[in-house]
Design a protein around this nucleic acid. Sequence first.
DNA 1: TCGATCCCCCGAATTTATTTCGTGAAACAA
DNA 2: TTGTTTCACGAAATAAATTCGGGGGATCGA
Lengths: 154, 154
Amino acid sequence: MDLDRIDCDILNLLQKDARLSNKELAAAVGLAPSSCLARVQRLRSEGVLRGAHAEVDPQALGVGLQALIAVQLRQHSRAQVKAFWKHALGLPEVLSVFHVAGTHDFQVHVAVRDAHHLRDLALDAFTTRTEVAHIQTSLIFEWAKGAVMPNYRA
Amino acid sequence: MDLDRIDCDILNLLQKDARLSNKELAAAVGLAPSSCLARVQRLRSEGVLRGAHAEVDPQALGVGLQALIAVQLRQHSRAQVKAFWKHALGLPEVLSVFHVAGTHDFQVHVAVRDAHHLRDLALDAFTTRTEVAHIQTSLIFEWAKGAVMPNYRA
DNA sequence: TCGATCCCCCGAATTTATTTCGTGAAACAA
DNA sequence: TTGTTTCACGAAATAAATTCGGGGGATCGA
């Protein structure tokens, strides 16, 4: 599981644009298409490259509001943590779930239609849960992703 | 900018796996490859489909720890918000930045080597900034993404 | 009811890319 | 040196993306 400079270039390029053709990718890293393909296949089989996901415009799907919901559980038993985790990931409004150590136990990133929808979600899917002690909702004004996962092996 | 059921199927499938070939995608949504391609191209040109990003294993890159850093600014002037925003997004350790309304002003998701690296990052890149009044770091135990962006137009 | 128009689909043909495979050069150990 | 491994290359075969002409319904107005 050793990554040389070319592997890192491949990973960075595919993180920025997974739709790059193998031919373009090969040209960008200075390899023949066949050699490049072998590396990509190796990275995939080793689990370093895990897949690719398309990004869609939230507004086009009617998402007018996003929020971070900080959740505090009543107890910190493994069963309660797992139960809430599974529940949150099953909700369609949930984009991602962070299980954290700190004043709160979870941070849940949600995408909703509007403020009314957010209120209903908070009340129906969070507050009413028996394992949830307290929630605190923060509206998201803006949200951006960094370009690539940092590489500390290089 | 109307999305019918087939458009939604396409968006959902590509969010789950952007490496789906047009041929497979067409078969999955019940369309001929040429018709499917036309739809995908339309979705791209309209900005609904924004691109695709490969996912890589953080551990393979030497990322041993992730954290959410909650940031409170000294003032809430537009200049300070923008300055911090740009600064945070420029850091290699930063995976994403949320500008939020609530007790904190930002939540910053970072990926670091280890606890020592996290401490250095917090002190050097956050605490020392003049616009930052206070930070609160939460270790991330586990982190998961929901499958797809919800669709409220369907 | 009857066109006329539009929209969107299909399938064949063409272009382009992916993938396989045999070969050979460099690095390394015995 | 000699054998072994690793890795890149390029040509050939396979498969996919893309273009394009044409045709089936809807819908609309007369």
